[in-house]
Lab assay of single mutants.
Amino acid sequence: LETFPLDVLVNTAAEDLPRGVDPSRKENYLSDEDFKAVFGMTRSAFANLPLWKQQNLKKEKGLF
């Protein structure tokens, strides 16, 4: 999966995202380093959170 810089994904409308980016899964296009910096946890820890908590975190970080 291709990764993009944080500033390309945060608070970006679906139509302005790079081609192929799923707007409902912007976090998947962050590098592992950016993911950890944004969410303060690994991808696996994030995946283990309840869906509502994942969505709330994504909203807080501008990735929803």
Rank of each mutant, 00 (worst) to 15 (best):
Phe39Leu: 08
Gln55Cys: 11
Leu49Thr: 04
Phe64Ile: 10
Leu63Asp: 02
Lys36Pro: 04
Met41Phe: 05
Leu1Val: 14
Thr3Val: 13
Leu1His: 15
Gly20Ala: 07
Ala47Gly: 13
Asp22Tyr: 02
Leu49Ser: 03
Ala47Lys: 13
Leu9Ser: 01
Leu49Gln: 06
Gly62Ser: 05
Phe64Gln: 14
Lys53Asp: 14
Trp52Met: 10
Phe35Ile: 03
Leu63Val: 03
Leu30Asn: 01
Leu6Ile: 12
Phe64Trp: 15
Asp22Gln: 03
Leu30Trp: 02
Ala13Tyr: 08
Met41Pro: 00
Ala37Val: 13
Ala37Lys: 13
Glu33Pro: 10
Pro23Cys: 06
Val10Leu: 13
Phe64Leu: 13
Arg19Glu: 15
Phe39Met: 06
Gly40Met: 13
Asn28Trp: 12
Asp22Phe: 03
Thr3Ala: 07
Thr12Met: 09
Leu49Glu: 07
Gln54Tyr: 01
Leu51Arg: 12
Asp34Arg: 01
Gly40Gln: 15
Leu57Phe: 08
Gly62Arg: 05
Val8Tyr: 15
Glu27Arg: 00
Arg19Pro: 15
Gly62Cys: 05
Pro5Arg: 04
Leu9Ile: 04
Lys58Leu: 05
Val10Ser: 06
Arg43Ser: 06
Leu1Ile: 14
Gly20Asp: 08
Asn48Thr: 14
Asp34His: 05
Asp16Cys: 14
Phe4Met: 07
Thr42Phe: 07
Asn56Val: 13
Phe4Gly: 03
Glu2Tyr: 11
Pro18Tyr: 03
Glu27Ala: 01
Leu17Glu: 04
Lys36Asp: 14
Phe46His: 00
Leu57Gln: 03
Gly20Met: 05
Ala45Trp: 08
Asp22His: 04
Ala37Cys: 10
Glu27Thr: 01
Lys61Glu: 05
Pro18Cys: 06
Thr12Asn: 06
Leu49Pro: 00
Thr12Asp: 05
Ser44Asp: 13
Gly62Met: 05
Glu2Leu: 15
Ser44Arg: 13
Ala37Thr: 13
Val38Ile: 09
Tyr29Cys: 03
Leu6Met: 08
Thr42Val: 11
Glu2His: 13
Ser24Tyr: 14
Pro18Lys: 01
Glu60Lys: 10
Asn28Ile: 10
Asn56His: 12
Leu57Arg: 04
Pro5Ala: 07
Asn48Cys: 11
Thr42Ser: 12
Pro50His: 05
Thr3Gly: 04
Gly40Arg: 13
Ser24Arg: 10
Phe64Asn: 14
Thr42Leu: 12
Asp32Asn: 12
Asp34Lys: 03
Gly40Ala: 14
Asn28Val: 11
Asp7Met: 09
Phe39Ala: 00
Phe4Arg: 02
Pro23Gln: 07
Glu2Thr: 13
Gln54Pro: 00
Lys36Gln: 15
Phe46Gln: 00
Thr3Asp: 03
Asn28Asp: 15
Pro18Val: 01
Asp34Ile: 06
Asn28Met: 15
Trp52Pro: 09
Leu1Arg: 15
Leu57Val: 07
Glu27Ser: 01
Ala13His: 09
Thr3Gln: 07
Val10Asp: 02
Asn56Cys: 13
Gly62Gln: 05
Arg19Met: 15
Asp22Ile: 04
Pro5Glu: 06
Leu9Asn: 02
Gly40Tyr: 08
Ser44Pro: 11
Phe35Lys: 00
Leu51Ser: 10
Leu30Gly: 01
Leu49Phe: 08
Pro23Ser: 07
Ala37Tyr: 11
Glu15His: 08
Thr42Asp: 15
Phe46Tyr: 08
Arg43Asn: 05
Asn28Leu: 14
Val38Cys: 12
Glu33Ala: 10
Leu6His: 04
Thr3Lys: 09
Ser31Ala: 08
Leu17Ser: 04
Val10Glu: 05
Thr3Phe: 15
Ala37Ser: 12
Thr12Cys: 10
Thr42Trp: 05
Leu57Ala: 07
Leu57Ile: 09
Ala37Ile: 13
Lys53Ala: 13
Thr3Met: 07
Asn56Ser: 12
Gly40Asp: 14
Ala45Arg: 11
Leu30Gln: 01
Phe39Thr: 01
Glu15Met: 06
Phe39Tyr: 02
Thr3Ser: 08
Lys26His: 02
Leu1Asn: 13
Lys59Ile: 14
Met41Glu: 01
Val10Met: 13
Pro50Tyr: 02
Asp7Val: 09
Leu30Thr: 01
Ser31Met: 04
Val10Tyr: 07
Leu9Thr: 03
Arg43Gly: 03
Ala47Met: 12
Leu17Trp: 06
Leu9Pro: 02
Val10Ile: 12
Met41His: 04
Asn28Gln: 14
Lys58Val: 03
Leu6Lys: 04
Val10Asn: 04
Val21Asn: 03
Ala14Tyr: 08
Lys53Thr: 14
Lys58Gln: 02
Asp22Ala: 02
Tyr29Glu: 02
Asp16Gly: 07
Pro18Asp: 06
Ala47His: 14
Arg43Lys: 13
Leu17Tyr: 06
Leu51Met: 13
Asp16Ser: 07
Pro5Ile: 04
Ser44Thr: 14
Ser44Gly: 13
Ser44Met: 12
Lys53Phe: 14
Gln55Leu: 13
Ser44Cys: 10
Met41Ile: 09
Met41Asp: 00
Ala47Leu: 11
Lys53Tyr: 12
Pro50Asn: 04
Arg43Pro: 06
Phe35Gln: 00
Thr3Asn: 05
Ser31Val: 04
Lys58Pro: 00
Pro50Ala: 09
Phe46Trp: 09
Val10Cys: 07
Ala47Thr: 11
Gly62Asp: 07
Asp32Glu: 12
Ser31Ile: 05
Asp7Ile: 09
Leu9Trp: 01
Asn56Asp: 14
Leu1Gln: 12
Ala47Trp: 09
Phe4Pro: 01
Lys53Met: 13
Ala13Leu: 11
Asn11Gly: 10
Glu15Lys: 10
Asn28Ser: 08
Arg25Ala: 09
Leu63Gly: 01
Phe64Cys: 14
Ala37Pro: 00
Phe35Val: 01
Phe64Gly: 15
Ala14Leu: 12
Lys59Tyr: 10
Trp52Phe: 11
Lys61Asp: 01
Pro18Leu: 03
Pro18Trp: 02
Ser24Gln: 14
Lys26Ala: 05
Ser44Ile: 14
Phe46Val: 00
Ser24Ile: 07
Asp22Leu: 03
Tyr29Gly: 02
Arg43Tyr: 08
Tyr29Asp: 02
Lys36Thr: 14
Asp16Val: 02
Lys59Val: 12
Tyr29Phe: 07
Asp7Trp: 15
Leu51Thr: 12
Val38Asp: 00
Leu30Val: 04
Pro18Gly: 04
Asp7Lys: 09
Glu27Phe: 02
Trp52Asp: 11
Thr12Phe: 08
Asp7Gly: 09
Phe46Leu: 03
Phe39Arg: 00
Leu57Pro: 00
Arg25Glu: 05
Lys26Arg: 15
Asp22Met: 02
Tyr29His: 12
Asn28His: 11
Glu2Ala: 14
Lys59Ala: 10
Leu63Ala: 02
Asn11Val: 07
Leu49His: 03
Thr12Ile: 09
Val21Pro: 04
Asp34Met: 05
Leu49Ala: 04
Glu2Lys: 14
Leu51Lys: 11
Val38Tyr: 05
Lys59Arg: 12
Ala45Asp: 15
Leu30Pro: 01
